[in-house]
Computed example of a mutant assay.
Amino acid sequence: MRPDDWYSTDDLDTFLTRAGSFLRSRPALHTVPLTVTEGLRTRGLHYYGTEAPHFGVLESEGAVRAAYIRTPPHSLNVTPLTPEEADSLAAHLAGLGRPVPGVTGERSSADALARAWERHTGGTSSPAERQRLYRLGTLTAPSPVPEGRARVAGEADRDQLVRWQREFAEAVGGGAMMNAEKWADARISYGGITFWEDADGTPLAMAGATPPVAGQIRVAPVYTPPHLRGRGYAGAVTAEVSRAALASGAAEVLLFTDLANPTSNALYQRIGYRPVADFAVYDFMG
């Protein structure tokens, strides 16, 4: 496997022409590049940041083997890689001369790329987060269901969504997350956030879902303000968003968790989510 086997481009259409079928062939493991490229396609190339994104495709013997995307300032996101593919990708990226602040990918792939990056660049890598990807099996509503009801957020909720997105980003350490106003406007446009609210209409928690692409929908984000946690609101609103995703015809309903949070991992399993794969996030320095 050679670095030259990787093809890089800044053109989204070219990337999707080359890699679109490959990404759709494994919609669960490729959920992030699928949903990100769909957002770029429908919302514009600066939807996730102020700089243009770039992409790469590994082609060997006439077939696509792997792909990556980067929407600066966010880290690289890679599809599953063999150790040999990870080594060739690290050499390819080093040769491009572009900054690579880190990587997110299936755990063994991210581990291999981090080690290869150090070899090819002399830099260092540091594990930042361990994640688990879940797929919904049989949805089980939480019991007891907390008082309140679900409601899809609308235009009148924009300020609330902006505020909670910023709080969520701070809580998960996502300083490089996308502009909260852009995010809120996009989610409102397709009904992509649901609140759990009390009898007076005061939002207590929120859960979102990505637009469907390749038959999959990913639940994200899920957020409850600290002073309202432990009352079942997150489970109730996540179950409702999951139910709506299934009702819309999604073949797979997915979500990521932080493995450092046993509470959320236990919650999602109680309502029917089952592990698919572990993912890792690395920061690169130097």
Rank of each mutant, 00 (worst) to 15 (best):
P3H: 01
Y7Q: 13
Y7E: 12
S8E: 15
D11F: 01
D13M: 02
L16F: 05
T17D: 14
S21F: 04
S21K: 14
R26S: 14
H30I: 05
V32Q: 07
V32N: 09
V32T: 13
L34F: 07
L34M: 08
T37W: 00
E38T: 12
R43G: 11
L45S: 10
Y48A: 02
E51P: 05
A52P: 10
A52L: 14
H54T: 01
H54P: 03
S60T: 14
S60I: 09
S60K: 11
S60A: 14
E61M: 08
G62N: 10
V64G: 04
A66M: 06
L76T: 07
N77C: 09
V78F: 04
T79Q: 03
P80L: 01
L81A: 03
T82A: 11
S88E: 05
L89T: 05
A90S: 11
R98Y: 06
V100I: 15
V103E: 00
E106G: 04
S108N: 10
S109L: 05
A110C: 11
D111E: 13
D111P: 00
L113D: 01
R115T: 12
H120P: 02
H120G: 03
H120C: 06
P127Y: 00
A128T: 13
E129W: 06
E129S: 13
Q131R: 12
R135Q: 12
L139Q: 09
L139R: 08
A141C: 02
V145R: 15
P146A: 00
G148N: 10
A150Q: 10
R151A: 15
V152M: 11
E155W: 08
E155H: 11
D157E: 12
R158D: 02
R158G: 02
R158H: 14
D159I: 01
Q160E: 13
V162F: 08
Q165I: 02
R166H: 09
E167M: 11
F168D: 03
A169L: 09
A171F: 10
V172K: 02
M177F: 15
M178V: 11
N179Q: 11
A180Q: 05
A180R: 03
W183I: 02
A186H: 12
I188V: 15
F195D: 01
W196A: 02
A199S: 15
G201L: 09
G201K: 09
A207H: 07
P211L: 09
A214H: 04
G215K: 04
V219Y: 01
V219D: 00
A220G: 06
Y223H: 12
P226M: 01
H227D: 14
H227A: 12
R231N: 13
G232Y: 04
G232I: 03
G235F: 03
A236W: 08
T238N: 03
A239D: 05
E240R: 13
V241S: 08
S242P: 12
A245M: 08
A247Y: 07
A247Q: 15
A250D: 06
E252K: 09
V253M: 05
L254D: 00
L255M: 14
T257N: 08
D258I: 00
S264P: 10
L267R: 12
Q269Y: 06
Q269I: 07
R274S: 11
P275I: 02
V276A: 07
D278R: 04
D278L: 08
A280I: 04
V281E: 09
F284Y: 13
